[in-house]
Simulated assay, not measured.
Amino acid sequence: MINNLDSLIIGNKKFNSRLMLGTGKYQTVKTAINSIKASKCEIITVAIRRLPTNLNFDNTNFLNHFDWKNLWLLPNTAGSQTAEEAIRMAFLGHELACRIGQEDNFFVKLEVISDPKYLLPDPIGTLKAAEFLIKKGFTVLPYINADPMLALHLEDLGCATIMPLGSPIGSGQGLKNITNIEIIIENSNIPVIIDAGIRTPSEVSLAMELGADAVLLNTAVAQSKNPEDMAFAMNLAVQSGRLGYLAGLMDKKQYATPSSPLNQISKINKLL
């Protein structure tokens, strides 16, 4: 069984859940809140660019509806086309964290995306922004293509995690580059979080079975027909895949082998 010793460590924070959820694309605030509760996740990500520029809090601000004693905010720099824009969003993200009582929260999901069609992350801009933010004390979680060499460079810079995409954002294409993801997991000494493109609980489970440390989802839950049920399913998938990985999967074989070998059957017959 998975126990409390199997926690997810990011920076200096410990989390029991290995599922993270985004807060965009839900039909209603109530649906978002109920889905997050159903998922039992402990980290939710919010796009800073989509929030009011003054960050004022009133009864209509959807952030007021969350229990920030049990949730950790992961501000993200979505919509930033340059390193400079992403850096500016990161500082606004920390300001937002302070407003909800998380003064020690310097987490940032770093996204630098200059490609408007496929929304693929910019590796050069990501490296540049990551280096600056790490020097300023941020806990940087960079969103990248499934590029093993880029992952190593970002780890060397001091990033807290690596977040390779499964496939393009919101595409629902699943894990399209498993080989590179496996290489990243094998070589990484920091948590690897699969982010973007996942559509189904089975894909979540597969990501965890490969050895990923966590999964971040948004569209797969928010755009499903029943987001609350889907969020619960994704929670179970993360747990199932993680437990399968820890249990140790059997080796693949080229040929069939009987589940009841003849020598065992002979031994049984002698006993009868």
Rank of each mutant, 00 (worst) to 15 (best):
L206I: 13
P75H: 04
L217P: 05
V140L: 06
S35N: 11
H153D: 15
L165W: 00
T179K: 08
N76W: 08
G22A: 08
N16M: 08
I144Q: 10
V215F: 13
F106Q: 02
L152H: 08
G101L: 09
F15M: 12
E111I: 15
E228G: 07
F107E: 02
I268D: 12
E209Q: 14
D115S: 09
L157S: 12
G79I: 02
Y143M: 08
I194T: 01
K40R: 14
S80C: 09
T28L: 08
G166V: 12
I124Q: 07
G101Q: 14
F106R: 04
D67I: 01
L92P: 01
A237S: 12
D251Q: 12
D104A: 09
K69T: 07
W68C: 05
F107Y: 15
I124G: 04
V215H: 13
A32G: 09
A212E: 09
A32M: 15
I36A: 03
I190P: 06
K267T: 05
P201D: 04
G125W: 03
I178V: 06
S171P: 10
T60M: 13
I265D: 05
D195H: 07
S7H: 14
M1W: 00
N235T: 14
N180T: 02
L96W: 02
L246C: 02
K135Y: 01
V46A: 12
K40P: 01
A247C: 10
N61L: 03
L272C: 03
P191C: 07
K13I: 00
N226S: 15
L206N: 04
K25F: 06
V108P: 00
F138M: 05
N105P: 00
L74E: 01
K109F: 08
M149S: 10
L216W: 15
I198V: 10
G137N: 04
A196L: 10
A214W: 01
I113F: 00
D122Q: 03
I44K: 01
L127D: 06
I36M: 00
A146C: 14
P191K: 00
F132T: 09
D147W: 05
H153W: 05
N263I: 03
L262D: 12
K13W: 08
A247F: 14
S266K: 15
L92R: 15
P201C: 11
K128A: 01
